[in-house]
Write a protein that binds this DNA or RNA. Structure first.
Lengths: 207, 207
DNA sequence: CGTGTAACTTACGTTCGTGTAGGTACGCGT
DNA sequence: ACGCGTACCTACACGAACGTAAGTTACACG
């Protein structure tokens, strides 16, 4: 017969289900994932999942929440001190390190979220980050004689840089995150430092 | 009774269904979208969709294909001539203009694709683009004394910049795509021009 | 004015996934 | 050894989609 899996305590089972759930959501995305697959992989029947999380959305919410916490913590710690330049690099490194150590969590965050939730995991987080960065930029821009309206553009550009490279890195896993982070930071930093006061518009309008 | 919708020719209906399908896929993502909603919105019953596209995947494939064509065409045209610097800006502008004029198409491409397809719409396209850019960089890097291994990092960083800004722009729709493109191009260009030969590693390793 | 073809529909079978009701068995404490 | 609570399971009701079969309506054309 099918070998009976060992009985677990409530909190152990909970932890395990979060783990399995993250893996399955990472692989399939929210919609395509089924509680059945999750339950099977945890060697448990579906009602157990309902008991603990109330359903698919419940589990998903917990997974997302946990993952957000992890990544926010790391980035917050990274930008807590040092020169501006160092903070840029530290933030990139923190993000990439997260991607390296929690590939499944990262995958879950990048996948589509259910329609019900007010804008899914990553996009909301990244927009928050970008907005913050944008505010900082806007202040610096003002005092340096740049157009503050352009600040959000640069902020989002930076965030996009890091996230996209992160996604690519999960596939190649090379070069090391430290190298990648330093390259990205260099690109961003040098780009920002040598920004013209008012970028030259090269073409007026295409067709 | 429900008002009878006018009868359409095969090709007209086909075109209409592609249009509606794009809109619905953009709104819901592939998995969450239902043929029923698409058929309803087109004032037609479901079998019609099967007749024309063989099913959900078929319609989706056509929508994706069409959209890819559009965007590839535009970018190809944009980088066909001019100084390197001008090409960077033109490519960014072309992409952002596409985002502006085809927000639903862009949304479809960024959403998750069905698991069956070999890596969904956008990611595959962007990776292609990034790979091409990376090759060009690698060549330039070699002859300029930079580490060619870093080329893909910069390539992906650039692509990520543009796409993420594009996503953000769909929400704010300001400033104009021309301004945004010139800012992005400036950031990218200045960053690349002032790249140190070998980026200084600032921190050795965090805990 | 019939008649055939293309466009379209209603109706059904089937699968799959969610969520719940009620029962079983493991194992800890006394 | 004997409860007794907690972990867990089987079984079912339900609905949402997909996909198909067979019939029906509109319209062009001889």
């Amino acid at each position: 017969m099918t070998v009976r899996a060992p009985r677990l305590s409530a909190s152990e089972r909970r932890a395990q289900l979060i783990d399995v759930g993250r893996r399955v959501f990472a692989k399939r995305g929210y919609e395509a994932a089924s509680l059945e697959e999750i339950a099977d992989e945890a060697k448990v029947s579906r009602p157990v999942v309902y008991e603990h999380f109330g359903g698919k959305e419940g589990l998903y919410a917990v997974v997302i929440d946990r993952e957000m916490d992890v990544i926010v913590q790391r980035i917050a710690a990274a930008i807590s001190g040092g020169s501006p330049r160092a903070r840029v690099e530290a933030a990139a490194l923190a993000f990439l390190t997260y991607v390296k150590e929690h590939p499944e969590g990262f995958a879950v965050l990048t996948h589509d979220a259910p329609v019900s939730t007010a804008r899914g995991g990553m996009s909301s987080l990244l927009n928050d980050v970008a907005a913050r960065v944008g505010d900082i930029f806007a202040a610096s821009f003002k005092s340096a004689g740049y157009d503050p309206k352009a600040a959000p553009v640069y902020a989002h550009a930076l965030v996009g840089m890091v996230t996209f490279v992160g996604q690519w890195w999960t596939e190649t896993r090379r070069p090391s995150v430290e190298e990648v982070a330093s390259h990205i930071a260099a690109l961003a930093w040098m780009g920002l430092r040598h920004l013209p006061k008012r970028p030259t518009r090269l073409k007026s309008r295409p067709t």
